[in-house]
Simulated assay, not measured.
Amino acid sequence: MSTPVSVPPTDRRQSAGDNGFRPGLLSRLGAEAFGTLFLVVAGLGVPLFTLPQSNPLPGALAGGLAVTAAMLAFAYISGGHFNPAITLGNLVAGRIGIAAAAAYIGAQLVGAAAGALALFGILRTVPNIPDARTAFDTVTAGFGEHSVIQTSMAGVLLVEVLGAALLVAVFLGMTARRNTNAAAAPFAVGLAFAVLLQLGQALGNAPFNPARATASALFSSSWALGQLWLFWVAPLVGAGIAGLVFRGFADARGRTATLDADPSDDEADAGSDLADGFDDDQDEKPAAEPRPEAEHGRADADEAPEAGRDEARDFFDGPRKQS
């Protein structure tokens, strides 16, 4: 049996992609910004320019399909958040560092603002729309008199908390390392988002995405910025709840592990699902020390049942580093 070789310090950023290198922070931020831009253009643009006789695609379905497409295109680079609520859920669940989470949210805001700016510019070229800001009001999140069915602040707050919690829970569950269906995560998250958008549309254009809410508010009438706080506070609370629950599941799994299990395996699973995809803090960790030959053989045996899951896991994490 061959003796494992530790990874040299110069290879810490090597990863699982086909090119042998882990995407850098700038690449991940670019993917988050571009993916969020796509979500905003599709999620706001379709309802803005919908004509029932020629555009039968509902805005909620368009938003969900955009999430699926963006995750399929960019999740292997950044993890496919495109939403500050999802980023916070990953932070609370222990999958991403604080600095990286803050950078992700900044990139998402930039991408969302760029998408809304592009739509605003298009609106200004349409002669039948004299006031682009008034047109944006029709797709901007709001409550009370700015809700389609006059939903009160409490009602919109509750649906945002609930919707964000469900969305983050679907994301965390589908992208967990132990989920053998992880490759289907873009479809599950996209469908969940479409259903939630359909629920929130009449209640107050609830977006369950603070970046999207901010982008539309910037180009709407002044009331939108005054109500924007709710569409940050509520989804972040929901995301935090989902993250805590998911972290509790991981802790419970660790507590019920068998006595002869390798403690390092439980520790890794408890807080690092998908972490290889975007946790900058891991770049600073030294390479793992090689195990003795006997333990190396045991690790191979323990990991054998996981072989069938590599394809799904690699969708987000890429293949594991070779020891």
Rank of each mutant, 00 (worst) to 15 (best):
N209F: 07
S216N: 01
S220A: 15
A257H: 05
D18H: 11
I86M: 06
L29W: 05
T87W: 01
I86Q: 09
A304P: 00
A288S: 15
A211Y: 13
A164T: 08
E289M: 13
L203S: 13
A242G: 06
S222E: 14
A42Y: 02
L88S: 15
G144S: 01
P290N: 14
F171C: 04
S78W: 00
A176V: 05
G163S: 01
A299Q: 09
L72A: 12
H81L: 07
R124V: 09
G106P: 00
Q227K: 07
P9T: 09
A112N: 02
V92L: 14
R22N: 11
I129C: 06
Q53S: 14
L117E: 03
A164C: 06
T36G: 07
N55A: 05
L191F: 11
I149T: 02
G190D: 08
P286S: 12
R178K: 10
P290K: 01
A31H: 08
H146Y: 08
F187P: 03
E311R: 00
N55C: 09
L119A: 03
A99K: 06
T125L: 05
I122S: 00
G59R: 05
D280E: 15
S27V: 04
T125N: 00
L51R: 13
A176C: 02
A183T: 00
D137I: 12
P58N: 11
A60T: 04
F143R: 06
G240V: 07
G106L: 11
F136M: 10
E32H: 03
G30Y: 05
Q14G: 14
G35C: 03
V139D: 05
E267I: 13
L244R: 13
